[in-house]
């Protein structure tokens, strides 16, 4: 009531003013609204600008790099020795290192993450879920450099007891730690997909006499498969782009191998190695990290497109 009264008073006051002032006031208010909307739009558009800037910077510096190195040599060469006298720029060793560590990571994260998701979604009592999920979220929050420390100084010595002769830097321990690191990503996205499966499907299955396990594996999982695939792709992207764990624990020597017990550099580790050194701006070594970054972006993009395709292929609509 008091408010209505106040509004009335303002309205009377407004009417008492000369008409031109009032219109001017309205126009200025209109302009102010427009300016604010434009500013808000520009802020939102900064997301597009960022993407454009990333692509532009990578392409611009890579173009300078490819003036010195042929694209064919870059994509098919099996030697990466940019710091030697007779520098060779073949990206394959770095790609192999990236894929091996990511592969080891997935071999850990996919089964563990999937079983965790099935358990959390279909089996776990309410209290267990509420207690454990925050812990899994914390696992996501631990900085990657700490995981690197853990991989080098805890997991590697442990593995060396099981596999004598394992070098101090190796892709196996980096990959395992990356795998544990991305379990929460895989499990939380898969769990969301499974919980989104309508209850009626489970009830139908139970009514036919199926057990929980049968329902989970033969009804819920197939119905949620597009979300589960998305979770795996998310995990791959994370593993491929992971930097600190591999830079610390996998070694920084390019090594064209598919054996995870060896030491090798990944694309990301190479970028870190160059950035730590003192390469002058606009030198070919400086440009080479942008070319490597371009390959990294292309790889994550490829995985995302595959994921998008698989999701559409397997989508179930209710």
């Amino acid at each position: 009531m008091a408010n209505a009264h106040g509004a009335g008073a303002i309205a009377t006051g407004g009417a008492a003013l000369a008409a031109p002032t009032r219109f001017a006031h309205r126009r200025s208010r209109h302009i102010k609204e427009r300016v604010i909307e434009a500013l808000l739009f520009l802020s939102a558009f900064s997301a597009v600008a960022t993407t454009v800037a990333i692509v532009a910077v990578l392409l611009y510096e890579s173009a300078a790099f490819f003036e010195h190195v042929s694209i064919v040599e870059f994509l098919t060469g099996t030697e990466w020795t940019p710091l030697f006298e007779n520098a060779k720029y073949g990206i394959l060793p770095l790609v192999a290192g990236t894929l091996v560590t990511a592969g080891v990571g997935l071999a850990v994260a996919v089964p563990l993450g999937l079983v965790t998701a099935i358990y959390l979604s279909e089996f776990a009592p309410h209290r267990v879920r509420e207690t454990v999920k925050p812990f899994l979220e914390l696992l996501e929050g631990v900085p990657t450099v700490v995981y690197g420390y853990f991989a080098l100084l805890f997991v590697t010595p442990l593995l060396q007891r099981l596999l004598p002769g394992l070098p101090g830097f190796n892709m196996l321990s980096a990959g395992i730690v990356i795998g544990v690191m991305i379990i929460p990503y895989v499990s939380s996205v898969s769990e969301d997909a499974m919980r989104a499966v309508p209850m009626s499907l489970r009830e139908g299955s139970y009514a036919m006499g199926a057990t929980r396990f049968q329902t989970a594996v033969r009804v819920v999982l197939p119905a949620a498969v597009s979300g589960v695939v998305a979770a795996f792709i998310l995990g791959i992207s994370r593993a491929v782009g992971e930097t600190m764990v591999v830079a610390i624990a996998a070694g920084q020597q390019p090594n064209f191998t598919l054996d995870p017990t060896e030491s090798a550099a990944t694309i990301t580790a190479y970028i870190v190695q160059v950035a730590l050194g003192d390469l002058p701006h606009a030198s070919i070594g400086y440009q080479s990290i942008f070319a490597a970054g371009l390959v990294l972006v292309a790889m994550t993009l490829a995985f995302n497109i595959i994921g998008h395709y698989l999701r559409r292929r397997f989508r179930e609509v209710y």
Binding site: V48, T50, G241, T243, I271, G293
Partner: peptide
């Protein structure tokens, strides 16, 4: 739509790529 797609995609870009952007820009 373009803005929304970009916000989603940027969340998935490896963090080191932001480093390369910053180095160049």
């Amino acid at each position: 739509d373009l803005i929304e797609i970009n916000v989603t995609n940027l969340a998935g870009v490896p963090s080191i790529v932001y480093g390369l952007l910053a180095l160049g820009l």
